[in-house]
Design a protein around this nucleic acid. Structure first.
Lengths: 219, 219
DNA sequence: AGGAAGCTGACAGCAGGCTGAACGTCGCGG
DNA sequence: CCGCGACGTTCAGCCTGCTGTCAGCTTCCT
């Protein structure tokens, strides 16, 4: 499942992101509502985790805007224990569930799992890309010759590109996806993995936009 | 599906009963273990919902007795959030799944639906995997040399993989299946069980996807 | 043509995974 | 009540193959 995490706190944010990843989902972590808006508009998320206390405005407005645009993406709000009014307003604004901070990570997993199970009945959406067939939930890529195995890093990059078809992702953005800390300087790791992906999946799968980054190829 | 609900609390019991009925199943609600024993012996249930906190003795004993008599009826246990030990003992005693109280009724429906779906392929859903033949209802695996016995934990992991053929399940996901709390750091329990399963069932049964998790092998 | 950006084959190091063995625990039968 | 056996868990040492770096090459733009 693709999950958007909107949380400004560094420690909590990274912990939650890691937990989501460990559960086999694909987290995108943003720290402001501005970024959240961008991410939400360009990517089809299966679930949004929204902290209601953010620096650049109330998360409630974001949630209302989302619902006003007709989005039905499940939203779980994160709220402090003493903010009961906020919680109720959140549910009224269209949140599906809430978690009170501080919360246990296992608790979070359970709630996310509940959402995942709700989707479990539906058939897995298969993404078709040229002669490739990708199952996000299963993390499986199938080509004309059968299944293609990707390593963890390869999948992370491919998954990031799949999330925003047509969008250009910079090397820095992709790097951020691979490493929690973006201290990576002077390394061509991303290029290496793009190269490996092309070798496995076909050269057309990933397009290079010189000076800008990479983009999913059009089949 | 005929469902036996063992729950002493009036409010919760009736709510759950109504929910089950609303889902199109047939609930029998009893409030004591004595009644439960009578009901279970006289009726063939497809599923048992068992609260572990009951007035006339621990529900665990009931569950053990049930399994000792050779019953393979699926059992979902209801347990309080802080009773982790109890939950683990429940799974050890042969429970198929657990739900943490307080729970959402939709969550309950989802779990029941999962069980229903699992046993939908009546009478005996036999899964073929290479030269293995797996009977989900009986928890029995048969190989070329005859029946292979799996312990509770071994089965739990194998079952989780069987439920999603081709999908990659992370260690965290499998761990969650065993304990429900993933505060587990620094433990290679999953690896050990995978190792044992491979020894019993053949190395090809479970594939390792380095850095991501495990996947059912393709025969 | 020249430089910058990107590509890719090779390779060493190491994190992650495997597994035999030992230990603790629990339920059951005597 | 006690011992036995099965099961679950931890530990340590080994092994595998992913990962990241480098160097030399190609491609693209001015």
């Amino acid at each position: 499942m693709r999950i958007l995490l909107i949380e400004d706190d560094q420690g909590l944010g990274s912990a939650v992101r890691d937990q989501i990843a460990a559960d086999g989902h694909s987290p995108d972590w943003v720290q402001t509502l501005a970024e959240a808006g961008d991410a939400e508009r360009t990517t089809a998320y299966d679930l949004i985790l929204l902290d209601l206390m953010l620096p650049d405005g109330a998360g409630l407005g974001f949630l209302r805007g989302l619902r006003a645009r007709g989005s039905v993406t499940p939203v779980i709000i994160l709220t402090a224990r003493d903010r009961i009014t906020e919680r109720i307003e959140g549910l009224n604004a269209g949140a599906d569930d809430y978690i009170v901070k501080p919360f246990d990570l296992a608790e979070l997993s359970a709630r996310i799992g509940a959402v995942a199970r709700r989707y479990a009945g539906n058939p897995n959406p298969l993404i078709e890309l040229g002669d490739l067939s990708i199952d996000l939930a299963d993390r499986a890529v199938t080509g004309p010759q059968g299944r293609i195995d990707l390593s963890a890093r390869e999948w992370a990059i491919f998954d990031a590109l799949l999330a925003r078809p047509g969008a250009i992702l910079s090397k820095a953005q992709l790097e951020e996806r691979l490493y929690s800390f973006n201290a990576e300087v002077e390394s061509n790791t991303i290029e290496v993995y793009v190269s490996r992906l092309r070798k496995k999946l076909g050269a057309a799968v990933i397009e290079t936009v010189r000076g800008m980054g990479y983009r999913l190829g059009q089949p």
